[in-house]
């Protein structure tokens, strides 16, 4: 009896929080027919938003993979003063509101500041342009790769790398042939979380982008703008598309996991 009660309440919770809203969103997207849905998704503003989100996500993903790996390696392997402080700071983006992050960037790169003047004289536009949007998204997504890799590096230890060195491998070969392959699942999970978060980022990007149509309006900003402009079908359609992309990424992750498990068991 109690078992049923628990199962029932969990199902209800899921329905209320996830399944209900998603179904409603799907229904609302096609409220005016498939043609309207297609028109809204392929309208130039929407397409531009998708492209911009894709570009920012790609840049952020590459930067996180590179710097996340370096950061994790340094935090786990190098013992220096302030390591614990740095390690604690990694989680800061989780606890700071993205709006505050965006606001900090505005203050830092404003036209009166040293940095703002510096980039101004170089002719590089940081605020209300791509650089600030990338920085804001980086701020929000930075912890993911680091947080996936650090526990992995700790459990792996240094034995395997030392074994490779005793077999003649130089530092670069050790990194490419031993360290990176051992971290591959950390990269997969870290990348998945980074992409999902980058696609969905709203607050920080809204503050630093200026939300300029066809210029700095990402997909999420486009949804927000359509909603404010009473274009509900447009907002719903783009939202549903982003949701589909998120689902696809999660499905790919599960597929990769299943495939890895299959190759391991088939070799038995």
């Amino acid at each position: 009896m109690i078992r049923r009660l628990f199962i029932g309440s969990v199902c209800f919770y899921f329905a209320l929080l996830l399944i209900g809203p998603i179904l409603y969103l799907a229904v609302q997207s096609f409220d005016e027919g498939i043609a309207a849905f297609w028109r809204e998704v392929t309208r130039p503003e929407a397409l531009h938003g998708f492209m911009l989100t894709l570009e920012i996500t790609a840049i952020v993903l590459v930067m996180n993979l590179v710097f996340g790996t370096i950061t994790a390696l340094v935090l786990v392997r190098q013992h220096f003063a302030g390591r614990t402080v740095l390690s604690g700071l990694i989680d800061l983006p989780f606890s700071v509101s993205p709006v505050i992050a965006g606001f900090m960037l505005i203050l830092l790169f404003g036209p009166e500041t040293i940095l703002g003047t510096f980039f101004g004289t170089l002719g590089v536009k940081v605020l209300f342009a791509m650089p600030a949007m990338v920085l804001a998204t980086l701020f929000a997504t930075f912890p993911f790769v680091v947080r996936e890799l650090t526990p992995l590096l700790q459990t792996i230890g240094t034995d395997t790398e030392e074994a490779a060195r005793t077999l003649g491998a130089n530092e670069w070969q050790v990194f490419l042939k031993v360290t990176l392959p051992m971290l591959r699942w950390g990269f997969v999970y870290g990348a998945t979380l980074t992409v999902a978060r980058a696609i969905g980022e709203f607050g920080a990007v809204l503050v630093v982008s200026g939300n300029i149509l066809m210029l700095t309006q990402t997909a999420t900003l486009h949804i927000y703008q359509s909603y404010v402009d009473f274009n509900y079908v447009g907002a719903n359609a783009v939202a549903l598309t982003l949701l589909a992309v998120s689902f696809a990424i999660l499905a790919l992750l599960e597929l990769a996991k299943a495939k890895a498990a299959a190759t391991l068991t088939s070799a038995n």
Binding site: T160, E162, T166, V178, P181, M182
Partner: peptide, 28 residues
């Protein structure tokens, strides 16, 4: 260590988990 031409066996094996037995032995 690379140039000393020694073989080293670790307590916890330290095998390359992403490589097969053949690839592990062929690594060096």
């Amino acid at each position: 260590v690379q140039d000393r031409n020694i073989g080293f066996v670790f307590q916890h094996y330290a095998l390359f988990k992403h490589l097969t037995v053949f690839e592990n032995i062929a690594f060096g």
